[in-house]
């Protein structure tokens, strides 16, 4: 699998990124610590973690909203973190777009849908003339299943799902290469979540997109993601192919996270016992932890001592999975 990954083109590379926020004058809070991963072109990469784990912070760093305090972020091989030229900045904006969590808060209530969607077009003058712009807006609306007559409406007239689709159309009209979807369905009604996910998958195929999908809902992630990174307290603890992670979770935090997924079966649900993860104190004498490859394409944050335990667990899981095949 790893050989397969090597052949694929890396679109976004996050390398040893730290993100910290100032608290008061001298104190600093590290929201993300030493995060490293690559996103390959054409895949859906999911970033999963509980609230406050730094997943949104990391996603926003990739779109240059949050500055990195250490490390670097490469987009198509070019550094986009820190100080970059205005031309590069414009390039990043054009090629990396974001879908926001709350569709009600992320649309300008005093602007028509036409303006909301053409905002990016105006900023980069991505149209030949007025007619071309309107045609593009119509096309974008159609792509997300809305009607051209919605152009003159205001965001407050739409339902949550429709608003989120406006948000998607607004990002898609820029024809980006990478889309950062920051919990795009968590603010939506359960009945339309699938609709938005299917739409995102459809658009991904049509437009050859790459997604960085930020979520806390593992069942959603399993459905949409190709690869998953689990982040805990600003630290990435496990990265693996989606099915691999669900079948062979090795890091105790991942296991605890997976055990918390509710099952749609009352009997199983009753028997389910959540495994509570408590972060053990770092032993100063133990060897430092780093990302290690435990299976092909499956990385886990561990030191030598952890690796022994993890490999043992992996063996058990392999045995178990072989039996239950």
């Amino acid at each position: 699998m790893s050989t397969n990954n090597n052949e694929r083109e890396v679109i976004l590379s996050i390398r040893h990124v730290d993100i910290s926020f100032d608290i008061g004058k001298k104190k600093k809070f590290k929201a993300v610590k030493d995060a490293s991963f690559d996103i390959y072109r054409g895949e859906t990469f999911a970033l999963v973690g509980e609230s406050g784990s730094g997943k949104t912070t990391l996603g926003r760093a990739a779109i240059r909203i949050n500055p990195c305090s250490a490390g670097e972020i490469l987009f198509n091989g070019e550094r986009i973190s820190g100080k970059i030229s205005r031309k590069q900045d414009r390039n990043v904006i054009r090629n990396i777009q974001m879908i926001f969590q709350d569709p009600a808060a992320s649309l300008n209530e005093r602007a028509t849908i036409e303006y909301c969607i053409s905002e990016g077009l105006y900023n980069f003058h991505l149209y030949k003339d007025e007619e071309d712009r309107i045609a593009k807006v119509d096309k974008a609306l159609e792509d997300v299943g809305l009607l051209p007559e919605h152009k003159s409406r205001y965001p407050h007239e739409f339902s949550g799902g429709q608003r989120q689709r406006v948000g998607i159309a607004r990002a898609m009209i820029m024809e980006p290469q990478l889309i950062i979807a920051d919990e795009p369905i968590s603010a939506l009604d359960v009945s339309i979540r699938a609709q938005i996910l299917n739409l995102m998958n459809k658009l991904k195929k049509e437009k050859n997109l790459t997604y960085l999908f930020i979520a806390h809902d593992l069942s959603v992630v399993r459905f949409i993601a190709d690869r998953i990174a689990v982040i805990h307290l600003g630290k990435i603890v496990e990265i693996a192919e989606s099915e691999d992670l669900f079948r062979y979770p090795v890091h105790p935090y991942t296991i605890s996270l997976l055990s918390a997924v509710p099952m749609p079966d009352p009997i199983i649900e009753k028997q389910r016992d959540s495994i509570v993860y408590t972060k053990e104190e770092d032993d100063p004498e133990a060897s430092p932890r780093e990302m290690r490859e435990i299976r092909p394409g499956h990385f886990v944050y561990a030191n030598d001592e952890d690796m022994v335990a993890f490999e043992e667990r992996l063996k058990k899981l392999e045995l178990y999975n072989a039996e239950n095949q």
Partner: peptide, 15 residues
């Protein structure tokens, strides 16, 4: 958040 969204779309401060 909608201002953040505008920023992500490259909208200038004046606009």
């Amino acid at each position: 958040e909608y201002n953040l969204a505008s920023k992500c779309l490259g909208t200038s401060t004046w606009t």
